[in-house]
Amino acid sequence: MTSLQNKVTELFENGTINLLIGFKEAIHKLPVPCFIDNVSQVEQLIFTPSCKGNLSVYLHKTEVKQAKKVGILANTATLRAIVQLVSENQLGDIEKTVITLNTNGELVVFATMDELEAYVQANFPELSEEDKKLLDQLNAMSRTERWQYWTEQFSACVKCYACRAVCPMCYCSSCTVEGNQPQWIKVSSETTGNLEWHTMRAMHLGGRCINCGECGRICPVGIPVHMLTVKMNQDIEAEFGAKTGFSVKNGYALNSFKPGDKEQFIK
């Protein structure tokens, strides 16, 4: 048994957890989420750098909330998501045991939220090289080129809402797109409605998104949707000094204000 499996067995046996959200290897060799509720299943657990998924999204599931004592395997993005979710009071009753691998590949189990928060702050990541490159490319474009770029991307969107489904911050029990009185976003997929959907999604996530990039990674048509919130977070940090997923005392930058907020465009 690996050290991870030993640790998890121990957590089950001393009653710290009664459900573990982790990864196992699927038949086609990719890591797939698994939900372990007893020691006999521990052997399938894996946790490698290829486990890129953000499991914190499952913390909103009724089945998970009911389990109360929940262990979760967390990569760095998942840790930030947990910090952000705690700051938004979303993990109420769940007694979380968060397990991560540090940069040396050693297992770390966080006993308290304070420890987790301190770890996150000490290991706060920069934007990935790939995203930086794309952001620079987009910023260097003229406005009309950007319009061309994004409308072409959005025209391919089929509204499968996978970007919403994988997002740990998209936890509303009913989403704006599901309302039809009024119908804010058309059900049919066409460029204008798709553009509105992605604008709305970004606006509702700006200042809350933890830059895990899952939405862009999993988009079946390959739209880099995560760039919208990456950009918004950059603005929010620059303008209002707020950093997402950094502290459990994070306020939400867009429901607070300072009388001295600066802008140049309001006449």
């Binding site: 989420p33 999204v57 599931k61 499968c160 809402y161 058309k186 059900v187």
Partner: peptide, 25 residues
Amino acid sequence: HASMGCFGCGACAFACPTCTCFDIQ
């Protein structure tokens, strides 16, 4: 065990060559 991990998006159905569910709007 097979489906707890399902996020509930439509990526599989929309890509599927035989999924035929539709919604009249």
